[in-house]
């Protein structure tokens, strides 16, 4: 199921503005990789290039390579829609579809891609909701609207929706930043469980969170405002937090920066 990602010399642009420069890194399969760094350093931007969501923004384009098990995602023959079926994404703010029930939200990815069989859909809905630790809370109200859940439940609903299409990789863009500590804990436990089946990449502003959930951590920084962001280093989370190679990483992690 899970695949590895290799990024090679990736430059990311918004129109003429170079937002991120020269990223080269690899993400191991069946592991959690955290992206940390100050605001505006491009960690979310890098994340969005991993499933070609970056180009949804007008003017967004990239140069360089992103390999998913040796397949270049930016090769001219590759269909971005197919990429996004393989690499799923969870967003910063919970965004369930407001016109759909809980069940339809989870099944949306399959239904919109042509799966009609009610039995298959029911199975996938239950499996995904169990996978997102939400089944017990919602099993009696699957036909109620998804927007009626609490914020933390909505975010787990979005995770269930993302894993329902069985992606190889799951990208999470600050999935806990709009949630309270208890919901955050629930999501973190879920991330831990998800890495058995998926390659997970998570962007976070919370360094304790990165230390808690991730196996490897990538630190991004930018030299100055208006300059492109860049990858400073990527290593085992243990090493990054105890003995980083670059002093800028240590400064950021220990709070001495700027």
């Amino acid at each position: 199921m899970a695949k590895r990602i290799d990024v090679k010399d990736l430059d990311i642009f918004y129109g003429d503005f170079k937002a991120v420069e020269g990223v080269t890194m690899s993400v191991e399969p069946r592991s959690v990789t955290a992206f940390i760094g100050p605001s505006g350093c491009g960690k979310s931007t890098v994340l969005r290039t991993l499933n070609r969501m970056h180009e949804v923004i007008p003017g967004g384009r990239v140069e360089g390579k992103v390999l998913l098990d040796d397949q270049d995602l930016y090769a001219p023959t590759v269909d971005p829609v197919a990429v996004r079926r393989t690499v799923g994404m969870v967003f910063q703010r919970p965004n369930p579809f407001p016109t759909m029930s809980i069940k339809d939200n989870v099944a949306a990815g399959l239904k919109l891609n042509g799966v009609r069989n009610a039995k298959i859909l029911d199975e996938v809905v239950e499996r995904s909701l169990r996978g997102a630790n939400l089944w017990n809370e919602v099993k009696d109200r699957l036909n109620k609207p998804g927007a009626g859940l609490s914020g933390g439940q909505q975010q787990r609903l979005c995770i269930a929706r993302a894993i329902a299409v069985e992606p190889q990789v799951l990208l999470m863009d600050e999935p806990c930043s709009a949630l309270d500590p208890i919901s955050t804990l629930a999501i973190e436990e879920l991330v831990h469980a998800l890495k058995d089946r998926f390659t997970v990449v998570i962007v976070t502003h919370n360094m304790q969170q990165a230390a808690r959930v991730s196996d490897r951590t990538a630190f991004f920084n930018l030299k100055a405002t208006g300059q492109p962001g860049h990858l400073v280093e990527i290593d085992d989370t243990q090493t990054i937090f105890s003995n980083p190679t670059v002093s800028a990483t240590e400064d950021y992690i220990s709070g001495r920066f700027g």
């Binding site: 499933n51 969501m53 949804v56 829609v81 197919a82 990429v83 996004r84 079926r85 393989t86 799923g88 994404m89 967003f91 703010r93 965004n95 579809f97 407001p98 016109t99 949306a108 990815g109 919109l112 891609n113 979005c158 929706r161 993302a162 299409v165």
Partner: peptide, 27 residues
């Protein structure tokens, strides 16, 4: 219609036209 809904749909591998027909218009 919030852009987040469109992005959520794209991220599920739903083509743009289908996102418009099934997500944006119903909303």
């Amino acid at each position: 219609v919030p852009n987040e809904l469109r992005e959520a749909s794209y991220a599920l591998g739903v083509p743009k036209w289908k996102t418009i027909v099934r997500i944006v218009l119903p909303t």
